[in-house]
């Protein structure tokens, strides 16, 4: 396990910094260009969610390595209003996607593992992992 590195999201351009850091770590882990692009897109979505709905928060990255596999773990943490209906935001065609396939369901598709915990009034934590194949 290596150390976590985080990017704070306060303004739109922080999304770029988060993408950059995520891509650097993904490259080090050994992801190819296609997966790098997917990871970067997932980071964009997570960071944009924080920027648009929570106002501020952070995205943390961790290169993970177990006996069998390597991967990248991304956590998006905010202390915003929280999501009251998780089933709804995870539903295709709903929310911010506007038929663009993005939003949280998009993140789930781009990554391998996806988990979300949210409490009304306290914030949201989304954790997602992609494994190197």
């Amino acid at each position: 396990m290596s150390d976590q590195s985080c990017v704070y999201i306060k303004k739109e351009w922080d999304i770029v910094a988060a993408r950059q850091m995520g891509r650097d770590i993904a490259t080090k882990v050994g992801f190819g260009t296609v997966d790098q692009a997917r990871i970067a897109t997932a980071i964009s979505e997570l960071a944009r969610n924080i920027y648009l709905y929570a106002g501020s928060g952070k995205i943390c990255f961790e290169a993970i390595e177990t006996v069998q596999k390597k991967g990248i773990n991304i956590k998006a943490i905010d202390e915003g209003p929280g999501i009251s209906d998780l089933a709804q935001v995870m539903e295709d065609g709903f929310s911010t996607s506007g038929g663009l396939g993005a939003g949280l369901p998009g993140v789930k598709r781009l990554m391998d593992e996806f988990d979300i915990v949210s409490k009304s009034g306290e914030g949201t934590t989304i954790e997602s992992t992609k494994w190197l194949r």
Partner: peptide, 25 residues
């Protein structure tokens, strides 16, 4: 330039996958 192109195509792939999922639904 292909890295650039790849990034610009990402949303199309996602939208297509969403479309497929909605079609199944």
């Amino acid at each position: 330039s292909f890295d650039f192109l790849m990034e610009t195509m990402m949303s199309y792939g996602l939208a297509y996958q969403e479309f497929q999922a909605l079609r199944e639904k």
